[in-house]
Design a protein around this nucleic acid. Structure first.
Lengths: 337, 337
DNA sequence: GTGAAAGCGCTAACAG
DNA sequence: CTGTTAGCGCTTTCAC
């Protein structure tokens, strides 16, 4: 039924070696005449070479795996698009995997990607490998991996593309502090993971630098969801009406924060100011629009993919890459003079 | 370097046929003893079967291709997640392709998917095939294809999962009309494509049913972007201040509409009411929150994938599928009594 | 410039 | 229960 290189060879009265040369655009080794003849037949019968068969002999698949928590989150969607653009520019196709921050799912996906013999993997990790046996196996395979967004201890051997999360947290907190008050809270995402804790460090640094004593009850964690931001704000502000500024661990969290504040009839920014991190596209659509520390999200994905492809091609491109962030002031904070 | 089924066979002192039986979980044909022995070795050396090699002999790859305009659009991200969830539940991995509504890109991607021998394709089409030669080739290949969201003439032979766009447009317009005024505009997306025109039909139906004469200058087109909604609103309202209600061709367009109205200091919903289509997640986050005709977006993706997998497995599952929509009333329209 | 042959890693009869 | 053999569709020497 399916038509193969053999069929084309027979129809053209040549060997399949010659057809192979033609479909792979080998400059030499085929006369213009036979090349044309073969191309014509391929076109007429609608032959499509089987890249899987090819891949088993050349041991490269021109595919890459992308593992992110959830495409529905604008942040990861933007990241995914950056990856996909770069990869398609270089002739690669990408497998999309949604891990939901679930270590088990992540393992399943990584395994599937290995079986599919992807040339490399871009990983926004859900943390360390819980399954240490799998970790060893994965290590041994020694497939090119580029990290994005988050690091993890188990993945130290891999390089990646990130932002400086300490700096981002510092910038956000410092800007809040510049409002002339001291009571600034940090409503963070998932406790323990790289980004969350680094942003906390930045928060802490800014607080201490301002000569303020860090109040532990002003620091709470949850996860990276609207709901989490919402709930944490409700309970935090109920206890601490003196809080004047909230540094939200991400824009998504910040949206939940603002929602909660509205429900409590607290005015943003007049009574409480809010700053997020990410600058996802909705940040400017909500009311009040969100002041945030912008990440070059698309670029992170794009660069990570570029880095991966270099890696695959054994091009020297060492070390982690840190892309710069930028504070974007909108309406969830008051005007500074 | 890479370890193969042969290596395992040698280490276990069995033939590769036996190893093959084990890795494919064939119940019969292997004694418990040898099975254990082989499994142990596989585990120890970290062997991962090469599914590409497998796929060339069994002629199925357990992969599917997903072609959408752009994952960064929340609508398509949600769709993609539905597809991915269903596919991973059934052991498939999905290739993500962003066509940007560009027919040429779409062709390139479809071709890549064919070369990769995906078992099937889920296609949110950018319209008809401009390249008729490719169309013929694609047809001849006869790969399972399920359409989502949009239809196109060239793709009539394929079934899909949709909503009733005429009905959706009708619902939206009728609700606006129930506000007690007649001047309702339609700010549509890309002219000519399936969804846009069907929604117009629904608009028209509601208008005519109310005994109003359709005013052609109240109907404008652009594309499915915030910018398009924004610009079209500016120029439309400048000319027609008498408009009291706007039916936006999608939520994304509606966001642009509301932005423009704010800029013009026109109150929503007091002076002009706005209704969208989709119910993407941001619709409830913006101010005013958006009244919209909700599509079961995730479900469309999920169902489409299920349908595709049935198709792949030759399960009888004929005809198009239409999922139901629901008007969700929020704050971009006034209270009805 | 072209073809024959071997082999990539795996599965699928068919024998024993 | 297990091994042998013959491919799957393609690339890659190595001759001619």
């Amino acid at each position: 039924m399916k038509i193969t290189i053999n069929d084309i060879a027979k129809m053209a009265n040549v060997s399949k070696a010659t057809v192979s040369r033609v479909i792979n655009n080998k400059e030499e080794g085929v006369s213009e005449e036979t090349r044309k003849k073969i191309l014509k037949i391929i076109d007429e019968v609608g032959y499509v070479p089987n890249s899987n068969a090819r891949s088993i002999t050349v041991s490269e698949t021109k595919t890459i795996g992308l593992v992110i928590p959830d495409v529905r989150n604008l942040f990861f969607a933007e990241l995914a698009r950056g990856v996909e653009d770069c990869s398609s520019e270089h002739g690669y196709t990408v497998f999309l995997c949604n891990s939901d921050m679930d270590n088990y799912k992540q393992k399943i996906y990584l395994n599937a990607l290995l079986e599919k013999r992807v040339d490399g993997i871009i990983l926004d990790t859900s943390g360390d490998f819980k399954d240490k046996k799998f970790k060893n196996k994965f290590y041994k395979i020694d497939i090119p991996v580029i990290l994005i967004d988050r690091k993890a201890k188990d993945l130290e051997k891999y390089k990646g593309v990130f932002i400086d999360n300490v700096e981002a947290g510092y910038k956000a907190t410092k800007y809040l502090l510049s409002g002339g008050y001291e009571n600034v809270a940090y409503i963070g995402g998932t406790y323990g993971i790289d980004t969350t804790m680094k942003r906390f460090e930045g928060y802490k640094k800014a607080i201490e630098e301002a000569g303020i004593e860090l109040n532990p009850s002003y620091v709470v964690y949850g996860d990276y969801s609207i709901k989490s931001g919402h709930e944490n704000t409700l309970s935090l502000i109920k206890k601490h009406r003196e809080i004047k500024g909230i540094f939200a661990g991400s824009d998504i969290i910040a949206i939940g924060v603002i929602q909660a504040l509205k429900e409590m009839n607290i005015l943003v920014p007049d009574e409480i100011e809010v700053v997020g991190i990410d600058n996802i596209s909705v940040s400017q659509l909500i009311t009040p629009s969100l002041t945030t520390v912008a990440q070059p999200i698309y670029k992170i994905g794009y660069r990570a993919c570029k880095k991966l492809i270099n890696y695959i091609n054994h091009k020297f491109d060492d070390g982690d890459e840190y892309l710069s962030t930028e504070l974007i002031v909108r309406d969830s904070t008051r005007k500074r003079i």
